[in-house]
Amino acid sequence: MKPAQNVPEDRIQIGQLRSAYGLNGWLWVYSNTEPMSNLFDYLPWYVETKDGWQVMDVKRWKPHGKGLVVSLKGVSDRTAADGLVGANVWISKSQLPKAGVDEYYWSDLTGLTVLSLDEQEQDINLGVIYELFETGANDVMVVHATPDSVDSEERMIPWHKDVVQHVDLDAGRIYVNWGVDY
Rank of each mutant, 00 (worst) to 15 (best):
A4Y: 05
P8F: 15
R11W: 08
R11A: 05
G15L: 04
L17Y: 07
S19L: 10
G25C: 04
V29C: 01
Y30G: 00
Y30D: 04
S31V: 03
E34W: 07
E34F: 10
L39V: 09
L39W: 04
F40P: 05
F40A: 04
Y42Q: 07
L43I: 11
P44H: 11
P44G: 02
W45R: 01
W45Y: 12
K50Y: 11
Q54K: 14
Q54T: 13
V55C: 11
D57H: 13
V58R: 06
K59D: 14
R60H: 15
W61R: 01
K62V: 13
K62G: 12
G67Q: 07
G67F: 03
V69L: 00
V69Q: 02
V70Y: 00
K73Y: 11
K73P: 01
S76A: 01
T79Y: 07
A80F: 07
D82S: 07
L84Q: 05
L84E: 06
L84M: 14
G86C: 08
N88K: 11
W90I: 07
W90P: 01
W90T: 02
I91Y: 09
S92L: 08
K93H: 09
L96E: 05
K98T: 14
A99V: 10
G100Y: 07
G100T: 02
E103L: 05
Y104W: 13
S107R: 00
D108N: 14
G111K: 11
V114G: 01
L115Q: 02
L115K: 05
S116T: 15
D118S: 14
E119H: 03
Q122C: 12
I124E: 10
I124Y: 12
N125R: 05
L126E: 02
G127S: 08
V128I: 09
Y130C: 00
Y130T: 05
